[in-house]
């Protein structure tokens, strides 16, 4: 580890520590502003803001990709190669089309993209809904826990610890549920399909331009791995042959020595 590594770790460490102190501060502010009884409701509202913001972030992340796919789909359903080549340049201008805006477009490629957009949005919302349920559960349980605590024995750190314990417990129950397993799989699968569709679209554009495609790269990588395996087998055969030859040489030398020593 060199000094640069230390600097990078320290930067992350400070960021996280600052976030932890800010979180603690926010917690303290909520406690200062109202009665402890109102704290669970504050925490529930805070989690709702968080998940809404997370939903927007995820939406923002996927929107450019979906917009690009839509643009390509329009072009590839009956477009000329020149149009396909030019479409990647125009996707920036058409981001306003909206994520779930399904239109009456026809054509197989467009239908595929719209189906994917709908599934991705539904999978994301189902996943976030479960997390929000876990947060609501956590807030409710925290309220129950608070009723059993003596304010005289409490400080912010201890109160915060109670919150972390309660929240983790509620969250662990959620992620152990069948519904969460199903939602996680659905989201991961929808995301995989988005990537694969993007790669497929890019491949068609690259092929039109006579550039190497991902499909070609995959073939090369398969061959590289096969060559590694062949090389390994050759090396093992060679090692075995060397061992056999050494043994034979030893036998020969031993035989010669014995013969030399014989009367």
């Amino acid at each position: 580890m060199n000094q640069n590594d230390i600097t990078a770790i320290l930067e992350r460490l400070f960021r996280e520590a600052q976030r932890a102190v800010a979180d603690l501060g926010e917690f303290g502010r909520l406690v200062q502003e109202g009665d402890l009884e109102a704290l669970p409701q504050h925490l529930r509202q805070r989690s709702q803001h968080f998940f809404l913001s997370l939903r927007r972030q995820l939406q923002d992340q996927t929107l450019p990709w979906l917009t690009m796919l839509r643009t390509w789909a329009k072009a590839t359903d009956g477009a000329t190669p020149a149009e396909i080549l030019l479409t990647p340049l125009s996707w920036w201008q058409s981001q306003a089309s909206g994520e779930e805006a399904s239109t009456a477009e026809t054509g197989s490629q467009q239908a595929r993209v719209e189906a994917l957009a709908a599934e991705l949005a539904a999978a994301r919302d189902a996943y976030l809904e479960l997390l929000q349920d876990a947060a609501d559960q956590a807030a409710e349980r925290f309220g129950e826990r608070l009723r059993g605590l003596d304010p005289e024995q409490l400080d912010i750190r201890r109160l915060y610890q109670h919150w972390l314990d309660t929240a983790e417990e509620a969250y662990e129950e959620t992620i152990a549920s069948e519904a969460f397993a199903s939602a996680t799989g659905r989201l991961a699968n929808a995301w995989s399909e988005l990537l694969l569709l993007l790669q497929d679209g890019l491949d068609r554009v690259l092929a039109q331009a006579g550039l190497p495609t991902r499909r070609e790269l995959n073939e090369t990588q398969v061959q590289i791995q096969e060559l590694r395996r062949q090389q390994r087998q050759r090396e093992r055969r060679l090692q075995a042959e060397i061992a056999e030859l050494r043994a034979a040489l030893d036998r020969l030398l031993t035989g010669t020595t014995s013969a030399d020593q014989a009367p």
Binding site: T184, N189, L195, L196
Partner: peptide, 13 residues
């Protein structure tokens, strides 16, 4: 449990 790892690995490489 429900992740399609054939598609996942194909997507990411």
């Amino acid at each position: 449990k429900y992740v399609d790892f054939d598609r996942f690995a194909a997507a990411y490489g």
